[in-house]
């Protein structure tokens, strides 16, 4: 599998470490139902057969966390974006979502 690292170019997947589902958000620890929310966050997964957003870390490269969009049936990679870009975009006025 070749991962198109936005910083380093396409690299073999063995340079990367995999973490998993990138659609999860760490819950508010102060919420009244924090225990339930953390249970879902830490343990429950959609685990879809198909398009999957997931975290990969370029351990033997730029050491950046990437959000990949990959099909779990074909392993085809649709997109690889740096994790941090999400934040900067979200911070931008008028950013979608």
């Amino acid at each position: 599998m070749r991962i198109p690292c936005p910083y380093c170019g396409a690299r073999d997947a063995h340079e990367f470490a995999y973490l998993g589902d990138a659609t999860l958000t760490r819950p508010d620890p102060a919420a009244a139902d924090a225990a339930d929310r953390f249970h879902d966050y830490v343990y429950l997964r959609d685990n879809p057969a198909g398009r999957h957003q997931e975290w990969w870390y370029h351990a033997n490269g730029c050491r950046q966390w990437l959000r990949l969009t990959r099909d779990t049936r074909t392993h085809a990679i649709e997109a690889a974006e740096p994790a941090r870009r999400d934040a900067t975009q979200a911070d931008m006025p008028g950013a979608a979502s």
Binding site: D40, Y43, L44, R45, N47, P48, A49, T72
Partner: peptide, 16 residues
């Protein structure tokens, strides 16, 4: 398991 359980609306502590 996740795919079949999802048909019943369940999310499981499992990855394939």
């Amino acid at each position: 398991s996740s795919r079949v359980a999802a048909l019943a609306g369940l999310r499981l502590p499992i990855e394939s």
